[in-house]
Deep mutational scan, measured.
Amino acid sequence: MATADDFKLIRDIHSTGGRRQVFGSREQKPFEDLVDLGWLKRSSVDSRATHYQITERGTSAAL
């Protein structure tokens, strides 16, 4: 179930172009929650960072 923080984060991601790069596993937790909701997808993972991209469902949630 989505929380107020989830909606705040997806709106922030949407307003800044729909993509986010995250460093460190602790910082990934809120983004992984949005992946579980179907609002974000992991577009790539490298040794230092994970890249996320907003989905259509995420765009709808952000509006």
Rank of each mutant, 00 (worst) to 15 (best):
M1P: 11
M1H: 13
M1L: 13
M1C: 12
M1N: 12
A2E: 05
A2R: 04
A2S: 05
A2H: 05
A2Q: 04
A2M: 05
T3S: 11
T3N: 08
T3V: 05
T3D: 05
T3E: 04
T3M: 05
T3P: 03
A4F: 10
A4H: 10
A4G: 08
A4L: 12
A4T: 10
D5I: 07
D5R: 10
D5F: 09
D5T: 08
D6Y: 07
D6I: 06
D6C: 07
D6M: 12
F7V: 07
F7R: 05
F7I: 09
F7L: 10
F7E: 04
K8A: 13
K8T: 09
K8Y: 08
K8D: 09
K8R: 13
K8V: 10
L9D: 01
L9P: 00
L9K: 03
L9M: 05
L9S: 02
I10C: 02
I10K: 00
I10R: 00
I10Q: 00
R11T: 06
R11W: 13
R11S: 07
R11M: 11
R11A: 09
D12V: 07
D12F: 09
D12W: 10
D12T: 07
D12G: 06
D12E: 14
I13Q: 01
I13C: 01
I13S: 00
I13F: 03
I13M: 04
I13P: 01
H14D: 03
H14G: 03
H14I: 06
H14M: 12
H14W: 14
S15W: 09
S15N: 14
S15Y: 10
S15V: 10
S15T: 10
T16K: 11
T16N: 11
T16A: 11
T16V: 06
T16D: 08
G17R: 04
G17F: 04
G17D: 06
G17E: 05
G18P: 02
G18R: 02
G18E: 02
G18H: 02
G18F: 02
G18C: 03
G18M: 02
G18T: 02
R19W: 14
R19N: 11
R19I: 12
R19L: 11
R20C: 09
R20I: 13
R20V: 15
Q21W: 15
Q21G: 07
V22R: 02
V22A: 07
V22W: 03
V22I: 08
V22Y: 03
V22F: 03
F23R: 10
F23Q: 11
F23S: 14
F23H: 11
G24F: 09
G24L: 09
G24P: 05
G24V: 07
G24Q: 08
G24E: 08
S25W: 12
S25R: 09
S25N: 12
S25Y: 11
S25L: 08
S25K: 14
S25F: 10
R26Y: 12
R26N: 13
E27G: 10
E27H: 11
E27Y: 11
E27L: 11
E27V: 07
Q28K: 11
Q28L: 11
Q28V: 07
K29H: 05
K29Q: 10
K29A: 08
K29T: 06
P30K: 10
P30S: 07
P30D: 05
F31K: 01
F31D: 01
F31S: 01
F31P: 01
E32I: 07
E32G: 05
E32K: 10
E32N: 09
D33H: 15
L34R: 00
L34F: 01
L34Y: 01
L34D: 00
L34C: 04
V35C: 08
V35M: 06
V35A: 04
V35S: 02
V35Q: 02
V35D: 01
D36A: 15
D36P: 03
D36K: 15
D36I: 14
D36R: 15
D36T: 14
D36H: 13
L37M: 06
L37Q: 03
L37H: 05
L37N: 02
G38H: 04
G38I: 02
G38F: 04
G38P: 00
G38K: 05
W39M: 02
W39K: 00
L40V: 06
L40D: 01
L40T: 02
L40I: 06
L40R: 00
K41F: 15
K41T: 15
K41C: 08
K41R: 13
K41D: 12
K41E: 15
K41Y: 15
R42F: 05
S43Y: 13
S43G: 10
S43R: 08
S44E: 12
S44L: 13
S44C: 12
S44Y: 15
V45K: 10
V45I: 11
V45C: 10
V45W: 12
V45Q: 11
V45F: 11
V45P: 06
S47A: 13
S47Q: 12
S47D: 14
S47V: 10
R48C: 11
R48V: 14
R48P: 09
R48K: 14
R48N: 15
R48A: 14
A49C: 12
A49M: 12
A49K: 08
A49I: 11
A49Q: 08
A49L: 10
T50S: 07
T50G: 05
T50A: 11
T50E: 04
T50Q: 06
T50L: 06
T50H: 07
H51G: 08
H51C: 14
H51I: 15
H51D: 12
Y52V: 01
Y52L: 01
Y52S: 01
Y52D: 01
Y52K: 00
Y52I: 01
Y52N: 01
Y52G: 01
Y52W: 03
Q53F: 09
Q53L: 11
Q53N: 07
Q53K: 08
Q53I: 14
Q53H: 10
I54E: 03
I54Q: 02
I54Y: 00
T55E: 02
T55P: 00
E56T: 10
E56S: 09
E56I: 09
E56Q: 10
R57Q: 14
R57Y: 08
R57G: 07
R57F: 10
R57N: 09
R57M: 14
G58H: 00
G58Y: 01
G58Q: 00
G58C: 01
G58V: 01
T59E: 10
T59A: 08
T59F: 06
T59G: 04
S60A: 15
S60E: 15
S60C: 11
S60P: 02
A61R: 03
A61T: 04
A61H: 04
A61F: 05
A62D: 02
A62K: 01
A62V: 05
A62E: 01
A62L: 04
A62Q: 02
A62N: 02
A62R: 02
A62I: 04
L63N: 07
L63C: 07
L63W: 05
L63P: 01
L63S: 06
L63F: 06
L63D: 04
